[in-house]
Design a binder for these strands. Structure first.
Lengths: 350, 350
DNA sequence: CTGTTAGCGCTTTCAA
DNA sequence: TTGAAAGCGCTAACAG
């Protein structure tokens, strides 16, 4: 405002000091009496520039409210500081927590998050298209990706980190909570407490962790001599849990313990057991879940469960991604985190 | 692959058909024997181009796996098809639903979502910086914005739609659920059922809806002759609700009805009432919430509440934003949606 | 309908 | 340390 500048002032006959459009590095350069590339270097991480020059440029930049245009930067440098986060369904109570942590950590590392919330399988291809088109630096996926899709990331040289899933055959970095170990711990504790009549409300077939948990529970039970454990499936939702319990009970068998694919279904099962079957939890029936979500700890439920170490897992996912973005050739790594047993009060334990 | 092309073939001596880098419109143009701008028009919405030409270009583009570079498009056209969604805290059970709906609807309209999850107030300025730098087309904010910040949107000519909040003074488009009306309905129903001893567990002072709900409830109660209704505050969380009820009860007064700032606090209050004070809900105490979130309908709680019409609200927010993006001068509009009463079973009603 | 010509705003050699 | 110049890949006039 009203500031008089050096020689440049009269080169251009009439130049309004207030630009309609946003100030560019050029505007700053002219007003500061330096070249445009000097301005660029001034804002670049390790740009060599004399302290005095830098100071002058910064002053003018501040006056003009100049900010480097991220699009132009990305176009030329090939780096956008944007990554995609793929989530299958936000309605699963477990994901908001994960999403919150991921975005926060990425933001801390000066990386923007492009959110893609998938409902159908088919949508993945469209999302990947966007990833390439926007030159995203990387992707964290908590959604199902086929081997072919994972291969595309290698072709496009876009770093990828899978969250709570591992690829069938393709190689890719991944961060997981050890579902099998967690499920085994739950089963063993139930066995130790004398439970003998089990039922399982598993997750949907197309869920990686769902299948892993179901398999681990069944295997451990088989090892203990229980071979015909009834299994029904739910969609990880509250009503899925209710419906699952109803189906199990419809068999007419007397259950001791119900193993649910996640906390939300466990909550549904608990409510259903109490309401529809007048059962006391855990006296009449033990119910366990998985994840360690917040609602599972509400005093009406106090679900016995395995808590995923979300903080450490998200931290790992973000670190791995950034590392892969910064270092082209970081080998595929798989990090497996142990879950933490949550005693709760929905299962009778020794 | 192995396809022989027309005259251009021998202009360039040695040109590998498989590019290391991504194919550009130039590559397509050369291989299809057309100008680069023809390729551009081929992929542009209303580009005039002969059917035959188009077909040839599309064929080559498919072979090369060509996709327009979104960065370049954005840089030159000034339109990025990306918007920011600002959320204050994902941990509030109400937001995942909103976020899911918003992203889905925006994606349907070919718009990408840049997610910003704010914890502290101060972070807003950094977020806005990113918005300008990335030339985002618009912003939907479910986070608190100061008048000065809202003004910045006008300065930068970036469309803004506020979600469940209205600016103090500045003018901005907004979509809200009518908190006041909803709260009044709850209070009136409680009054009609004969409740006389009220308590309020309000949201934090810095929450727009929290304050609106508190005020509406207090006003309606005052109009009915109840002037010294005790008010405590929570942070919209489960434990906030528990703690809130504990504080209200600590006063030694006998309460009939507790009005909570949201469902999550109502759930906490219900659990606390049952567990710590051995109260029967709703026989001994009526508790009402707000939002109509999924957990509120779980059979252990069945919270009497007001359900926000999330679908319609998100649809409205997205429509308003897109409209403002497409039409520079769309005036500030405020759309207010009525909430729907959910009878539930946590309040004794007439 | 098509090609030519300018840039969008920036990073990056390369000389000076 | 600095500036000039060459693009990144695309859209948008403008002629033809």
């Amino acid at each position: 405002m009203g500031q008089v500048l050096d020689e440049d002032a009269m080169d251009q006959p009439v130049k309004p000091t207030t630009l309609a459009r946003r100030a560019t590095s050029y505007d700053v350069a002219r007003k500061a009496g330096v070249s445009q590339s000097a301005v660029s270097r001034c804002f670049a991480p390790g740009g060599s520039i004399a302290p005095a020059t830098r100071k002058r440029i910064e002053k003018v930049a501040a006056e003009l409210g100049y900010r480097p245009n991220a699009l132009a930067q990305g176009l030329i440098s090939g780096r956008t500081n944007m990554v995609a986060v793929l989530i299958s369904s936000l309605t699963n109570l477990y994901y908001p927590e994960v999403l919150e942590e991921l975005t926060r950590r990425l933001t801390e590392r000066d990386t923007r998050v492009l959110l893609f919330s998938l409902r159908a399988e088919g949508e993945v291809d469209e999302v990947l298209d966007q990833v390439w088109r926007h030159s995203l630096d990387g992707v964290i996926s908590a959604a199902r990706l086929s081997d072919a899709q994972i291969q595309l990331f290698e072709d496009h040289r876009v770093p990828l980190v899978l969250y709570n899933r591992v690829p069938a055959k393709a190689r890719a970095a991944s961060v997981c909570c050890d579902s099998a170990a967690g499920e085994v711990e739950l089963v063993e504790r139930l066995l130790a407490a004398g439970h003998r009549d089990f039922g399982i409300i598993a997750g949907p077939e197309d869920s990686y962790v769902g299948e892993e948990r179901r398999r681990a529970a069944l295997d451990r039970l088989a090892a203990a001599g229980f071979n015909d454990v009834p299994v029904v499936r739910g969609d990880f939702s509250y009503s899925g849990g209710r419906e699952g319990l109803r189906q199990l009970m419809a068999g007419g068998l007397s259950l001791n313990a119900v193993i649910c694919g996640n906390d939300q279904m466990a909550i549904g099962a608990i409510d259903c057991a109490r309401e529809a079957f007048k059962l006391k939890i855990p006296d009449d029936l033990s119910i366990v879940g998985f994840d360690g979500t917040a609602p599972a700890s509400w005093s009406s439920y106090r679900v016995t469960s395995i808590r995923q170490p979300v903080r450490r897992m998200t931290e790992a996912a973000v670190s791995m991604l950034i590392e892969r973005i910064e270092n082209e050739n970081t080998s595929a790594e798989r990090r497996l985190f142990a879950g933490e047993f949550v005693r709760g009060a929905s299962a009778r334990l020794a």
